[in-house]
Amino acid sequence: MIGRRKILKWIAAALALLLLFNLPATCSSRIKSVFNNSAAPVQMLLLSFGMSLKEGWDAVRGFDGLIERNQRLTEEVIRLQAKAVMLENLAEENRRLHEQLDFSDAQPDNLIAAQVIARSVSGWWQSVRLDKGTKHGVRSNSPVISSDGLVGCTAGVSALSSEVILVSDPACKVSARISRTGSFGIVSGRGTNLKGYPVARMQFIHKDIPVREGDAVVTSGLGGIFPKNILIGYIDKIYTEENGLYQYADIIPKAVVYLMEVVFVSTNNDMAEDGE
């Protein structure tokens, strides 16, 4: 009798597991939301605790550390002043060109600033978690950008947090354009390379396009999710397909390699869906 009860228990457990695997997407995202909503405040607390520890350690390092820091900051100020002058010239030139071409401003105007509070617990997925969710106006399938360019797009959005699939994840596909030549292609993630850096690949570049290493790759604006002219990264290596019809290139996604603590979620694209 006990044996039969035990068998029934195991069958029930196996069925429950099978049911869990085959749950509809909305149900599984709700279950995930429960865990993520409970974890978001804890992760924010742990993150701020870690930051305070780091600041404390810096303070303990004392005066020597301050001198080094001061020297570094002075150099940084000089470098930034030079850069600012250069950028002012560029901005002026840009303004004139815009006026001449009657260029419409393609920058998204509804940006939500969000802090990166966690990374994917599994190395197989390239994603980060933000501290903003549906409560703050974030929807799934919204582009996420930083000052370095395109970071990725939002996926599973819960009330208090949202998951961002990075450009380096194979699930992220972006219609892209090589800035210098204007040629189009598709950028998809390739995970990490042997050095541990995130990488992406641009495919379907016409064989006759003279692509160079270091060329900037930007979003094309096609597809409706990502706004136009957002920097994705720079071309690292170029290859030709075996059939000789197309070229493809490995890209270093700048905004993912130098991932900022604060990123921006754009909310004015048509393809975004309500989260949860």
Partner: peptide, 9 residues
């Protein structure tokens, strides 16, 4: 599975 984009379970 909740803390990464993996399918739940």
């Amino acid at each position: 599975d909740s803390f990464c984009p993996a399918p739940l379970g």
